[in-house]
């Protein structure tokens, strides 16, 4: 076998371990693994700034979703309002109490933590500075939390619930519902802009000079 190049010039596919010679990928291009087709690098111009903006927007929308009324149910002239926190607290009585913590985490706490960690990691890089301390741990956490932040699953749940109650009573959507829909859209956009390996590479080079 021929002599392998230096370790710095190599990159291994995180999904299947295929070894590649690292070359600079131009902004707008996407480098994928030949074998398993996982996206390796997808740098986008001003991606860092865009991701930070989207994460900030997501945090603001989440705060709005928490404080405005979420859904309103009207039966025979009597209205019943539920906020996002009410849905989180739905399990708080009896044997289902542990689910309250899980609900709060999946719908509110984990998404917020993830946005915060992403902003913490990327903000100094968008402005061309050194990463802040523990930026690596912050970004590792953000990636680990990705499957557990379930805002978009929740919104589909809301849609299903709406249909279930529709026959029983008149239901109206509050501003918090739309804030939450906005949050889901912003989150999906943000995750599409973000290429994990590109972020790690940028973090690494920024640390060195």
């Amino acid at each position: 076998m021929a002599q392998l190049p230096a370790l710095d010039e190599l990159i291994a596919c995180p999904s299947c371990d295929a070894l590649y010679l690292e070359r600079d990928v131009a902004p707008g291009e996407t480098a994928s693994c030949l074998r398993c087709h996982a996206v390796l690098e997808a740098p986008r111009r001003t991606a860092m700034t865009r991701i930070i903006m989207l994460a900030l927007a997501a945090i603001i929308l989440m705060v709005a979703a928490i404080f405005f009324p979420f859904l309103e149910l009207e039966v025979a002239g009597r209205a019943h309002r539920a906020s996002l926190l009410d849905t989180v607290r739905a399990f708080s009585s009896g044997l289902t109490a542990p689910l309250t913590v899980a609900m709060a985490a999946l719908i509110v706490i984990l998404p917020l933590t993830r946005f915060g960690a992403i902003i913490y990691t990327l903000a100094p890089m968008a402005f061309g500075n050194h990463p802040w301390p523990h930026a690596q741990s912050a970004f590792r956490m953000a990636e680990a939390l990705r499957p557990w932040a379930m805002a978009e699953v929740f919104i589909v749940g809301v849609a299903v619930a709406l249909v279930k109650v529709a026959g029983l009573a008149h239901l109206s959507l509050g501003p918090a519902f739309w804030a939450f829909v906005g949050l889901v859209i912003v989150t999906v956009l943000k995750d599409n802009f973000m290429s994990r390996l590109t972020v790690w590479k940028t973090l690494d080079t920024r640390r060195k000079f």
Partner: peptide
């Protein structure tokens, strides 16, 4: 990107005697 081995046989980090990071793709001894 070009594979460090020769097509069609894909060379893996393991086969090259190296270890790849599943988080960031960096290759280690």
């Amino acid at each position: 990107m070009e594979n460090a081995g020769h097509a069609p046989q894909i060379l893996t980090a393991k086969a090259a005697g190296l270890v790849g990071c599943v988080q960031c793709g960096r290759v280690h001894r």
